[in-house]
């Protein structure tokens, strides 16, 4: 009998509110070492809120823990310093700044260690060679796909222990989505745990070892993508 893989990230009864509106209800999820876990669901299901709640950007009850230690609540700086790094919805790149400056900000906590900075930059540019060609270009002037690459590259510059990705396919052409997903598969294969929130379920299910389905703020299913034979298998949860 093999031992169950270690749980890197775990939430227990994680609930989030925006004022009087409860956007997430008692969510229990976990991500194991080296795993890519997808969170699927229709628009407004609370997927982005789940990531914001883990990071401490939303008002929450319940717990979120990383490597067994509870993550601080309402303190995203402390959470990200543990290596829990979010690539936000809409990419959140710093448009007026150059690609190089955006990447430097990714390594914000790295104070003056040039060798380590160079190592991280080389890794990012090896993964996304196109960023290397655009280092002195303003980030806002790049295409949507390149901006998404930059957003992921910038997150990698902080040497994350787990990556939280919010809708990386948003507004991108299918060819570009395939390219981004291919890069995420590479990161997964390198052993980086990823929690991927995605509306485009087929693309996410190709990569994920497990998938949670979130509807109206509640986790309604935890699936093994290999068990899904057709879109209808997934659709039934959306109309739960």
């Amino acid at each position: 009998m093999t031992a169950a893989p270690a749980r890197i990230l775990e939430t227990q009864a994680l609930t989030a509110r925006y004022g009087h509106v409860q956007a997430l209800s008692a969510a229990d999820i976990h991500v194991c070492a080296g795993e890519l876990v997808a969170v699927l669901g229709p628009n407004g299901a609370g997927k982005s809120t789940l990531l914001r709640a883990i990071l401490g950007l939303a008002s929450t009850t319940g717990t979120a823990s990383f490597h067994g230690e509870p993550l601080p609540r309402q303190d995203p700086v402390a959470v990200s310093s543990r290596g829990v790094v979010l690539v936000p919805e809409g990419r959140g790149i710093f448009g007026p700044m150059t690609v190089s400056e955006n990447l430097q900000l990714g390594a914000y906590r790295l104070r003056g260690d040039k060798a380590e900075y160079g190592r991280r930059l080389a890794r990012v540019l090896a993964l996304f060679p196109r960023l290397g060609e655009r280092l002195s270009q303003t980030a806002g002037s790049m295409s949507g796909g390149e901006q998404q690459m930059l957003a992921i590259g910038r997150a990698l510059m902080s040497d994350p222990k787990i990556l939280l990705l919010d809708e990386p396919s948003l507004g991108l052409a299918p060819r570009v989505i395939a390219e981004i997903m291919e890069k995420l598969a590479l990161l997964r294969d390198e052993g980086l745990p990823i929690l991927l929130v995605e509306q485009k379920a087929p693309a996410a299910l190709k990569l994920a070892q497990r998938a949670y389905v979130l509807v109206l703020g509640r986790i309604v299913a935890c699936l093994d993508p290999r068990d899904l034979s057709s879109h209808d298998d997934l659709a039934k949860y959306y109309f739960h």
């Binding site: 990071l55 950007l57 995203p76 700086v77 990200s80 310093s81 790094v85 979010l86 690539v87 936000p88 959140g92 790149i93 710093f94 448009g95 007026p96 700044m97 400056e101 430097q104 900000l105 990714g106 914000y108 906590r109 910038r154 997150a155 902080s158």
Partner: peptide
């Protein structure tokens, strides 16, 4: 650079560990 990041997106700055 932290000033500029804060100016561009507070949430993105927070996510990178910048004390906004």
């Amino acid at each position: 650079r932290a000033f500029l990041a804060l100016g561009a997106s507070e949430n993105a700055a927070l996510a990178l560990g910048i004390n906004v």
